[in-house]
Design a protein around this nucleic acid. Structure first.
Lengths: 202, 202
DNA sequence: ATAATGAATGACACGATGTCATAAAAAGAA
DNA sequence: TTCTTTTTATGACATCGTGTCATTCATTAT
């Protein structure tokens, strides 16, 4: 988290720093992001940066958190409604694409998602929050279709990685947004009903 | 690719460099890997490194390529046999785990897989080779279960990301190798027959 | 008015990178 | 062998980014 000193800053100054940071984190992934670029753009001295943040990760996750809090709450609410994890993931996908109508948002998310590692998860928080989110899902998910908790977790995993890749691909073919959504839904359907179902005429 | 100068080196000297590099690429992901560490460990001067390689990426992909050539050929052969993409991915999974009985291999692969980005694909080559590999699959895959090429590609995508995550998880719970394999197979089964099949009594 | 606390600043030490001029070695020609 | 040419080896150097810290400046409390 940023220090209290940062939070005490005038809204104007805070925004100047956050805007500069968003620009840098849109340009390159976290690992390559340059603190120098951020402070140059925001016109603050080097020392100040470290007075406000522990390092660039601190700032990065603060920016993401700020953007995602609403989103997470929406997802959680959606899940509570009927416990359908398939619907929840589709809802998440739709909301994220909706937020990304705004070009700045989209470009930032695009860089972020592209550079997510194998076990990094959406909605893009620090990895230690993953279990927290999974626990929430387990609590409210409809388990009637699953033999046990393990199986449910497996499917959540699958939905997770497929959603991640689908969002990535959608951002990279943003002109064909509708087609990409159909493809995503098709993948969800595959998980629900299977690829080979037609053969068996269910 | 490394330069001819590197390839001309004595086997001994080459191995010294490659061993040092593998050590570094096991320690940290490519982005964080330090050329300084490699040349210190391999006891070669700074200038020599750049005489042999364009940079660390060059060396990194050379090491991976060396390890994966056999693997790729095996997979391709397997697919040719019967065109079953599900079997192909399971075969790939098994082979990789087999290779990783060796601890050094496993540790290297673990670091590599952990740090694969959203659109990076196994078997871990430069991304521009992805389409090459996909074309090969399309050529030999049994398409009878799919309405069209698009649908097949979708399922390959799904298998891809699920396999990637499963390998990651297996490496991180290597003591429960057998259980992890079962989980992976279960996920493949889900894609084949669907989560909800039981309801419909197929 | 003075002390005390909080914030701002930029010089500095450190470590990493890629280049390049020069030295050394090897290969080829005479 | 001796001289020339080509290939390889080397490490000092310029550049850039990072995180720290002693010092200065501002604000608030006494």
């Amino acid at each position: 988290m940023p220090t209290q000193t940062f939070l005490n800053l005038s809204e104007e100054k805070k925004q100047k720093i956050l805007t500069a940071a968003r620009k840098e984190f849109t340009r390159v992934p976290l690992q390559e992001a340059s603190i120098n670029n951020i402070i140059k753009e925001a016109q603050i001295p080097r020392g100040s940066f470290y007075q406000y943040f522990e390092g660039k990760e601190d700032l990065f996750y603060y920016i993401l958190k700020e953007r995602n809090e609403k989103l997470v709450k929406l997802i959680e609410k959606k899940l509570k409604e009927n416990g359908d994890i398939f619907e929840m993931f589709l809802y998440f996908y739709d909301k994220l694409i909706e937020i990304s109508e705004n070009k700045e948002n989209r470009e930032l998310y695009k860089t972020v998602i592209t550079n997510l590692k194998t076990n990094d998860f959406i909605p893009f928080e620090r990895n230690d929050k993953k279990s927290e989110f999974n626990e929430y899902i387990l609590k409210y998910a409809d388990t009637s279709k699953f033999e046990n908790k393990e199986d449910l977790l497996l499917v959540i995993n699958m939905l997770h990685v497929i959603t991640k890749l689908s969002i990535f691909q959608t951002f990279n073919s943003i002109d064909e947004k509708k087609e990409m959504r159909k493809k995503y839904i098709k993948q969800i359907e595959y998980i629900k009903y299977g690829v080979i179902r037609k053969e068996k005429e269910c």
